[in-house]
Simulated scan of single mutants.
Amino acid sequence: MDYSLLVWLLPTLALVIGVAVGFLVARVLPNAVPNSTQRQLDDIQERFDSYQNEVVTHFNSTAILVKKLTQSYQEVQDHLAEGANRLALDELTRQRLLAALHSDSTTQAHRERLTPPRDTEVPKDYAPKAPNSPGMLDEQYGLKRK
């Protein structure tokens, strides 16, 4: 009977010890792994947030620069108009200068597109031939008749 008890007791004891060790390992290891995973996730989130802030800052500064550019362009336009009014010798010259100044800004905004050609015939993918003459795929094409 001792022998049969030993046959059952050793595998049962090994199973209990294996379950206990597995349980302890499962409790200890997951605590270490999520910390590194959580740190990686936090690092990625921090980099993403800083990238978003950089993008917002970039577009804000671009908008400010475009606004300054528009204001500078308007100041140049006003300066040219004032110079045309002050420096033109007669009314006709003044009117032509002001018209040229304002026509440049309107013609650039309202330029017309090039008109397409009127002949819209589709290109042929074969060689044209005269009526009642053999085509290029004919057996007799290019051969002299006797």
Rank of each mutant, 00 (worst) to 15 (best):
M1I: 06
D2F: 08
Y3P: 05
S4D: 14
S4L: 08
L6R: 13
V7H: 02
W8T: 12
L9F: 09
P11V: 04
V19H: 04
A20L: 11
A20D: 02
G22H: 09
L24H: 14
V25T: 04
V25I: 13
A26W: 01
A26Q: 06
A26Y: 09
R27Q: 04
R27W: 02
V28E: 13
V28A: 02
L29K: 07
N31V: 01
V33R: 02
V33C: 08
P34I: 02
P34N: 08
N35L: 03
T37F: 06
T37I: 00
Q38N: 01
R39K: 07
Q40V: 07
Q40K: 04
L41V: 05
Q45Y: 00
F48I: 15
S50T: 00
S50V: 08
Y51K: 13
Y51N: 15
Y51L: 01
Y51T: 15
Q52T: 05
N53C: 00
N53E: 11
N53A: 08
E54Y: 00
V55H: 02
V56H: 07
V56L: 15
F59N: 14
T62W: 14
I64G: 03
L65S: 04
V66Y: 07
K68A: 14
L69E: 15
Q71K: 08
Y73P: 03
Y73E: 15
Y73D: 14
Q74W: 10
Q74I: 11
Q74L: 07
D78L: 12
H79A: 12
L80G: 01
A81I: 06
A81K: 05
A81M: 08
A84V: 03
N85P: 07
R86A: 07
A88P: 05
A88Y: 07
L89N: 09
D90A: 00
D90F: 04
D90R: 09
E91C: 01
E91R: 05
E91P: 03
L92H: 14
T93K: 04
Q95E: 12
A99R: 13
A99S: 13
H102C: 05
H102M: 03
S105C: 04
S105Q: 12
S105I: 14
S105D: 13
Q108F: 01
A109E: 15
A109M: 10
H110V: 07
H110A: 09
R111T: 02
E112D: 10
E112K: 09
P116A: 02
R118E: 14
T120R: 13
V122L: 12
V122A: 12
V122E: 15
K124W: 03
D125P: 06
D125H: 03
Y126T: 02
Y126M: 08
A130S: 10
N132C: 01
S133K: 00
M136Q: 14
M136K: 10
L137C: 09
D138Y: 02
D138H: 13
E139V: 03
Q140C: 11
Q140R: 01
Y141H: 15
G142R: 03
G142P: 00
L143C: 12
K144H: 06
R145I: 13
K146A: 14
